[in-house]
């Protein structure tokens, strides 16, 4: 016993090292599973408010760009509004008005501001200044006026953390807009402007510049939200799939204002999936 104790004492530095290192590894592993909560309740407020303060200072430098983006989005919305023809008072054309406006309102957008964003890691995350107090829940999609940004993974009172599209563990269901073929968009981990589109077979005709949008096969994003355009496409070695690179439409380096998507039908969809798991 004495020998054991003296052994432990002699190598106490090494054992302390092992203990601390195991603690770190436990933190990493727990954090790695991206559904788990990553920042604890006690630190979220402090970290969030420091991030908010720095974002308040740095956002002045990007005001011009933000203005431009918002103006562009305004123009786009205006053109949508104008293209919506007035109700024709001609009995020959069919007249249909949604009887209850809440029926058609399946998605709601919650505006938020990015207070923290990283793009240079292999697994990037961002933080927004809205949280559970504003009705944000884990699993909601995040977009901005240019396209898909990511999804929410963890929510606290006034802040929420999101997993960026620039994350090697965040696949997004996508489709080729012209042929409607499904694939998966996954970021490769190096260039923040380029991602890969996986699982498209060589029989699909893909041209450079084709649009890639979200598919309707998920309850996170509405369908046909822009993701990017095709940058290059070539068959892989075995000619089973295409190697497609896409230019992401969102500029992740200068993210500032985003919308969090609340899907009002998600509880229904989820309960349907849960009651018939073999169907999905």
């Amino acid at each position: 016993m004495g020998q054991l104790l003296s052994f432990l004492y002699r190598f106490r530095a090494f054992f302390t090292f092992l203990l601390l290192e195991f603690f770190c590894i436990w933190l990493i592993v727990r954090h790695n599973d991206y559904q788990r909560s990553s920042f604890t309740k006690t630190t979220a407020g402090v970290v969030g408010s420091v991030n908010q303060t720095t974002a308040n200072i740095t956002e002045y430098f990007s005001l011009k760009k933000v203005n431009e983006e918002l103006a562009q989005e305004n123009a786009r919305l205006k053109s949508l509004l104008l293209s919506n023809r007035a109700i024709p008072f001609d009995s020959l054309t069919q007249l249909s008005i949604a009887s209850d406006s809440t029926d058609s309102l399946s998605y709601e957008l919650i505006p938020a501001e990015i207070v923290r964003n990283s793009i240079r890691n292999a697994n990037n995350f961002f933080m927004i200044n809205k949280g559970s107090n504003d009705g944000i829940e884990p699993g909601m999609g995040v977009i901005n006026s240019l396209g898909v940004v990511g999804k929410i993974r963890d929510v606290r009172g006034d802040f929420a953390q999101g997993i960026s599209l620039l994350n090697t563990r965040n696949p997004i269901s996508a489709k080729h807009k012209i042929t409607e073929r499904m694939g998966t968009v996954l970021w490769e981990g190096v260039n923040p402007q380029v991602a890969k589109l996986l699982y498209l077979t060589p029989d699909v005709r893909i041209e450079v510049g084709d649009t890639i949008v979200t598919s309707s096969f998920n309850s996170i994003f509405p369908k046909e939200i822009m993701i990017g355009t095709v940058r290059s496409s070539e068959p892989d070695k075995n000619n089973t799939y295409l190697n497609i690179e896409i230019d992401l439409s969102v500029e992740f380096g200068s993210l500032s204002f985003v919308y969090v998507i609340k899907n009002n039908e998600k509880p229904e969809l989820d309960s349907l999936i849960n009651s018939n798991p073999q169907l999905f």
Binding site: A13, F23, I28, R116, S118
Partner: peptide, 26 residues
């Protein structure tokens, strides 16, 4: 460990900087 965990919280990489810092201090 303490310094690196503070850094980790802000870099959103909990545990990674901590393990590296503990290693170099060892």
């Amino acid at each position: 460990l303490i310094c690196a965990i503070i850094v980790d919280l802000f870099y959103q990489t909990l545990g990674i900087h901590a393990s590296a810092a503990v290693f170099i201090m060892f």
